[in-house]
Structures are given as structure tokens and as C-alpha cells.
């Protein structure tokens, strides 16, 4: 039996606004083994972000179970989810979402301020994270002084600094040139392969998807096809 970090069981998510109800995800199930780098593709509006938000505890499903590390997070309250995210998830956004008034170092520090770390412990973790993303020399820079690729690296450092099991990324390379995109993808790949993180990435880019271990195609709230199970090594 595989060790699944994520186990989604018949999840349905619908939004109701006035008299119309949209159901972007219907009766969806998915298992993601620990340490897998999974890519989700699909047309716009197919529910990719919605699914990612459910996995990351940003949103709750209308019905169904979402087991992360054996814990059913679909039952948690908003406040409980907030606490849960602080420990278990790192979220990487398409547009980085760094806090503009804080330096790279301080941005990466944000998740640690929620835990019980001493200043020295924080420093060690932040420097390690910045080093992992190759930005040790940019610690004091503000986001406005960094390139897009560098900003995304800081965002990744921020997502991993508190050592969560799960990383979710919503089109992390969507706003980057090919070269920067490739290095971000290598980084995500290595986080899964070498550091045991489970990575779920949404992307529109087939090349990005090819960097993942497995690719799933989402269409009208259902998985239409399962892609390759390759690429466990980086080029």
C-alpha cells in the first residue's frame, strides 16, 4: 500500500450565487503519494485553482473528504484551518505575493513568526531556505529590487521555511520567461525528490507539466486523462 499524503474522496465543490449554482468540481477523487510532484492541467475555468485551494485548506468542499496526512481537513473550521495551514502547507502563487515593504529575509521569516522559534533558530532556517533557492546574497533586498524569477524563489523559500509536508503552486511559472521558469521547475522537482515534499502544481504550460512526476488533466470538474509517470530525474 502506498503512503498517500493527500487522499481526496468524492469531493464536490459548488458555488451558489443567487439562483445559479456552479459546480466546478463534482465527485472527484485523487490520491497523491508522499514525495510526489504532481501537475494539474486543464482549460481555464476547469476548477484547478478551486481544487488547489481545497487541498491547501484555503477553502472547504461542499461535500466529500480531504485527508491530508490522515487528517480530514474538510471538517475543520475557518480558524482551525488557519492554524493548520501555518504548519502543514506552503502556498506558491503565480504573482509571488511577496509583502513589498519587507525584505526577502523578512518575507521568508513570516511563517516562522507563527511558530515557537527563537531568533537564532529563525535565522538559521531562513538562511538555509534562501540558500536552497540560491538567493543568500539577496536577503536584504526588497521585492521591488528583485527580478520575477528571484521573487518567485523568495516565495518558494517562504513556502518551505517552516518545513511543511505539502507545497501547492498555482501557475508558479506563468509569469516568467523560459529560463527562469525552468530553474523554478527544477527547484520544485528537487524539493520533491531530495527533500520529500509533496508538490501539487497547477500549470497551463506542457513543458512545465513535463517536469512533474505525474500530470493530470482536469476537465469540467473531472480528471479526463492521466499523463506520464516519468521524469523522476532532473535534466
Amino acid at each position: 500500500m502506498k503512503d498517500n499524503l493527500i487522499s481526496i474522496k468524492s469531493v464536490t465543490k459548488s458555488f451558489t450565487k443567487g439562483k445559479t449554482t456552479i459546480t466546478p468540481l463534482e465527485n472527484l477523487s485523487l490520491d497523491v503519494p508522499r514525495g510526489e510532484f504532481l501537475s494539474l492541467m486543464g482549460p481555464s475555468g476547469s476548477g484547478k485553482t478551486t481544487l488547489l485551494n481545497l487541498i491547501a485548506g484555503i477553502d472547504t468542499p461542499t461535500s466529500g473528504e480531504i485527508l491530508i496526512n490522515g487528517e480530514d481537513i474538510s471538517q475543520l473550521s475557518r480558524a482551525q484551518l488557519t492554524k493548520w495551514r501555518a504548519v502543514h502547507v506552503g502556498y506558491i502563487f503565480q504573482l509571488y505575493h511577496l509583502v513589498p515593504i519587507l525584505s526577502a529575509y523578512e518575507n521568508v521569516e513570516l511563517p516562522l513568526l507563527l511558530g515557537k522559534y527563537s531568533k537564532a533558530e529563525r535565522k538559521k532556517k531562513i538562511n538555509a531556505a534562501l540558500e536552497l533557492v540560491g538567493l543568500s546574497d539577496r536577503a536584504d533586498h526588497r521585492p521591488s529590487e528583485l527580478s520575477g524569477g528571484q521573487e518567485q524563489r523568495v516565495a518558494i523559500a517562504r513556502a518551505i521555511v517552516h518545513d511543511p509536508d505539502l507545497l501547492v503552486a498555482d501557475e508558479p511559472t506563468g509569469d516568467l520567461d523560459r529560463e527562469s521558469a525552468d530553474s523554478i521547475l527544477n527547484l520544485l522537482n528537487s524539493l520533491a525528490k531530495d527533500h520529500g515534499k509533496t508538490v501539487v502544481m497547477v500549470t497551463h504550460d506542457p513543458k512545465a507539466s513535463a517536469a512533474a512526476h505525474r500530470a493530470l488533466q482536469l476537465e469540467k470538474g473531472q480528471f479526463s486523462s492521466e499523463g506520464h509517470l516519468l521524469n523522476t530525474s532532473t535534466q
Binding site: T82, R85, A86, L114
Partner: peptide, 13 residues
């Protein structure tokens, strides 16, 4: 708003 949301996604109440 987006920055506030990001901080919430990180785990700030």
C-alpha cells in the same frame, strides 16, 4: 486585500 489574503494563507489569523 491580496496581501492580507496571502498572510492569511500563510497562517495569520
Amino acid at each position: 486585500i491580496k496581501e492580507m489574503a496571502t498572510l492569511q494563507s500563510i497562517g495569520y489569523t
